[in-house]
Design a protein around this nucleic acid. Structure first.
Length: 486
RNA sequence: GUCCCCUUCGUCUAGCCCGGCCCAGGACACCGCCCUUUCACGGCGGCGACACCGGUUCAAAUCCGGUAGGGGACGCCA
């Protein structure tokens, strides 16, 4: 009876990678961008699938037509792709399955496991408030449960007839066994008065129909779980395993939000973060493998275990993220980094393709000095845009005569040298110092200012090698002129 | 209010299930020293925690009970 296209394809597409039979899904609601919390949940699901050779499904929970937007869907997909969290099936849209949900609602009604409720939203709201004021649980009082006559054409919702005694428990893969007394659970609405199904009902149907084996999601869903289990049972579906991952907090221990800085995954990309750094950071937030801090994708997949995820919420620490990013910049492939860096340089008015040193060579001189691609771009700028002004305070530390002598000597020596590598240039400069009786800083600093404009830059030898001696000599001449006119 | 969950350095965490190796280990941040032609990188060292109270035990971060604090849920949102 379940003949919908996505279901058939979900069975057919990836037969070869279903060896373990594990099927997990990431099911965001498209009401905003992909934030770090969601990204971590997606990552844990992805790791679960990859580790066990299972299937990772992406499902968009857009049953709330009011709040869902296609822009959000795009933003989420973009975030997932950037992080390298590839999915095997989907994206599926719940909004495409409304007829399916309707069938199941009808099935429950036919079984007398669901009933029509004619209470209006306003009435419900008023009763909830009253109950709260009187210190009672604000749950539905069940007054339409036993209605015998159907009051004509008044609008109604459909409620699930939940058991009123006993208890429902599940063995959470992260938190352990959790038990709820059924009397805490009320008859939840499974179909709105406009005929659309509600979230708690859709997830159950979709997870069952997609044969999800492990539901890994945020722990704000813990309270929904017993209700959903009751639905599984009422419909005769096998109940999946659940794992509720604790949430991510801001530095003030409040739920992570915009005022804590960036929460969107894409914002981190724009801040010059590498996806592997964010992924590494996220996987270690709430999970660990002994003392290991750095994880390649393969290592992550090999060592990840959902049961080892911590039970308590964790605070997002931007400093540590930055440290990881610095690590991945330091150890990254210069060619790849160059490609990622280019747009940041363009934003700053530099165009490596129009001449100047090879960007990858520039990157090499900056890898140990940049924690983000933005910092790297700032540091790389001088290679492509010769300094138009010099750090005068730094320059003022040397006498005019000394500066003129340094620049003249260096220009002269560089014009005739056969040195090509950073080490050779450094040796040449060292010899020069010995010859002239200068200390290295007396030579290095003025030269650095001449080449980069400031005092914070890669090693002199590296700069000269990267810039080339011709351009170096040009810049030294320009500095010489500048020094002689002040 | 009711229910559910959580609690090791400022932060992420190891250890906890299977008590002794833990007067608690690693990492980020911070501080100091070293390296050094700037800035960084790196190296070395320092600071710094078992929420609290009881119980069990020869022995408890680890087991049991309670207290406090924090969070989440209680929607015709997801």
């Amino acid at each position: 009876m379940i003949g919908y296209k996505f279901i058939i394809s979900s069975i057919g597409i990836k037969k070869e990678c279903c060896m373990s039979g594990i099927r997990v899904r990431f099911a965001p609601s498209p009401t905003g961008y992909l934030h770090v919390g969601g990204a971590r949940t997606a990552l844990f699901n992805w790791l679960m699938a990859r580790k066990h050779g299972g299937v990772f499904i992406l499902r968009i929970e857009d049953t709330d037509v009011e709040r869902s937007t296609s822009e959000s869907v795009d933003a989420i997909l973009q975030g997932m792709e950037w992080l390298g969290l590839d999915w095997d099936e989907g994206p599926f849209y719940q909004s495409a399955n409304f007829p399916l949900y309707k069938d199941y609602v009808q099935k429950l009604v036919d079984l007398d496991k669901a009933y029509r409720c004619y209470c209006t939203a306003d009435e419900l709201e008023a009763r909830r408030e009253l109950a709260m004021r009187e210190g009672r649980k604000p749950k539905y009082d069940g007054r339409c449960r036993t209605l015998t006559e159907q009051p004509g054409d008044r609008p109604f919702v459909v409620r699930f007839r939940a058991p009123q005694d006993g208890s429902t428990s599940f063995d959470d893969q992260i938190k352990g066994t959790i038990t709820f007394p059924n009397e805490e659970l009320d008859d939840l609405i499974i179909q709105r008065s406009d005929g659309t199904p509600t979230y708690n009902f859709c997830v159950v149907i979709d997870d069952a129909v997609m044969r999800i084996t492990h539901v890994i999601r945020g722990d704000d869903h813990v309270n929904n779980t017993p209700r959903q289990i009751l639905l599984y049972q009422a419909l005769g579906f096998p109940v999946p395993l659940f794992a509720h991952v604790p949430m991510i907090l801001g530095a003030d221990k409040a739920r992570l939000s915009k005022r804590h800085g960036a929460t969107s995954v894409i914002a981190y990309r724009d801040m010059g973060l590498l996806p592997e750094a964010l992924v590494n950071y996220l996987v270690r937030l709430g999970w660990s493998h002994g003392d290991q801090e750095i994880f390649s994708r393969e290592e992550m997949i090999a060592s990840f275990d959902i049961a080892q995820v911590g039970r308590s919420a964790s605070v997002f620490n931007p400093d540590k993220l930055l440290w990881l990013n610095a690590h991945y910049i330091k150890t990254g492939d210069p060619q790849r980094l160059a490609g990622l860096l280019a747009p940041f340089l363009a934003e700053r008015g530099a165009d490596p393709s129009a001449g100047g040193p090879q960007l990858a060579a520039v990157v090499k001189t900056l890898q140990e000095r940049a924690r983000t691609l933005i910092e790297m771009a700032e540091g790389a700028l001088f290679y492509y845009l010769a300094p138009e002004a010099y750090d005068e305070t730094a320059m003022a530390k040397f006498e005019k005569g000394h500066l003129l002598a340094v620049y003249a000597t260096v220009a002269e020596r560089l014009a005739t040298t056969s040195a090509r590598t950073a080490a050779e240039f450094d040796a040449l400069l060292k010899d020069l110092c010995a010859e002239k009786g200068w200390k290295m800083p007396q030579l290095g600093q003025p030269l650095r200012i001449a080449l980069s404009g400031g005092t914070q830059a890669p090693g002199i030898g590296e700069i000269i090698e990267t810039l080339g001696s011709a351009e170096t000599v040009r810049r030294v001449h320009r500095a010489l002129e500048h020094a002689s006119t002040c």
